[in-house]
Amino acid sequence: MKNKILHLILFLVTGFYFSQQNAVEINGWTNINTFKCINNSFSNSPNVYLFTGNELPNVILKVNDFDCRNRIMTSDFRKTLNSEKYPYLSIKFLNFYRQTTNAFSATVEVKMMNVVKKYTIEFSEYKGSLVGNKRLRFSDFNIVPPKKMGGMVYVKDELDLFFSLAIDKN
């Protein structure tokens, strides 16, 4: 129950932050702190997405466009995702369904480092954007979370993927 309340709070806060824009954010935890990496190029893009018929989005993100607001953290994030060998991360919508007036469900395919995983994600509409989040794991993509200082500081396996897509209401 506590975990569901935490997800609801994170979803609401993210919904207010991401309203009326495109955004992709990856949040994670170390044993001593948290981190947030935002894809700045996608956040600044004017793209508007359609969710009708066969016109479902395929969002391709450049790994080097993620910024963790800390030079060392950003470098470690890009190195962990092996941005030299795998420069892109993609989120492809396979299907999309309206559940209620303001609630939607989608199956998405996330491709990272040539590993593809499918997830079901719940979305809400908020001020012209669809906002959703999903908890992923580094290990889902065969990635070993990084460690520093001989293992004294380590990144936890879980990541939260938050995103907002500006939509065309027509």
Rank of each mutant, 00 (worst) to 15 (best):
residue 23 A to W: 11
residue 128 G to F: 05
residue 63 V to E: 05
residue 15 G to R: 13
residue 89 L to E: 11
residue 90 S to H: 05
residue 170 N to T: 06
residue 29 W to T: 12
residue 142 N to E: 14
residue 135 R to H: 14
residue 127 K to Y: 09
residue 31 N to H: 07
residue 98 R to D: 04
residue 70 N to I: 00
residue 160 D to V: 13
residue 74 T to K: 12
residue 81 L to Y: 08
residue 124 S to M: 12
residue 31 N to P: 04
residue 137 R to H: 06
residue 11 F to V: 02
residue 30 T to C: 10
residue 96 F to N: 05
residue 29 W to M: 14
residue 5 I to N: 02
residue 16 F to N: 15
residue 26 I to F: 04
residue 26 I to H: 11
residue 9 I to M: 06
residue 120 T to C: 01
residue 129 S to Q: 03
residue 104 F to G: 10
residue 57 P to D: 10
residue 102 N to L: 02
residue 6 L to W: 00
residue 52 T to E: 09
residue 99 Q to K: 13
residue 89 L to P: 12
residue 121 I to T: 08
residue 56 L to P: 02
residue 104 F to S: 10
residue 84 E to V: 07
residue 93 F to T: 07
residue 96 F to K: 08
residue 69 R to W: 00
residue 46 P to V: 12
residue 47 N to V: 12
residue 130 L to R: 11
residue 2 K to G: 02
residue 3 N to S: 05
residue 101 T to P: 06
residue 41 S to L: 08
residue 153 V to G: 11
residue 152 M to I: 15
residue 75 S to L: 03
residue 27 N to H: 13
residue 37 C to S: 07
residue 53 G to Q: 05
residue 156 K to Q: 12
residue 116 V to C: 09
residue 54 N to L: 03
residue 71 R to K: 09
residue 132 G to K: 03
residue 14 T to H: 11
residue 62 K to R: 14
residue 52 T to I: 09
residue 170 N to C: 07
residue 96 F to P: 00
residue 152 M to A: 15
residue 22 N to Q: 08
residue 82 N to D: 15
residue 51 F to G: 12
residue 44 N to H: 08
residue 3 N to F: 00
residue 19 S to Q: 11
residue 133 N to F: 09
residue 50 L to E: 15
residue 133 N to M: 15
residue 53 G to I: 05
residue 59 V to G: 05
residue 94 L to S: 04
residue 34 T to E: 14
residue 166 A to S: 14
residue 27 N to E: 12
residue 106 A to L: 07
residue 147 K to C: 04
residue 17 Y to H: 10
residue 131 V to C: 13
residue 160 D to L: 04
residue 84 E to L: 13
residue 66 F to M: 01
residue 158 E to V: 13
residue 9 I to Y: 04
residue 40 N to I: 09
residue 73 M to L: 12
residue 112 M to D: 01
residue 140 D to L: 03
residue 121 I to R: 00
residue 55 E to N: 14
residue 141 F to K: 00
residue 83 S to T: 12
residue 124 S to P: 00
residue 161 L to K: 01
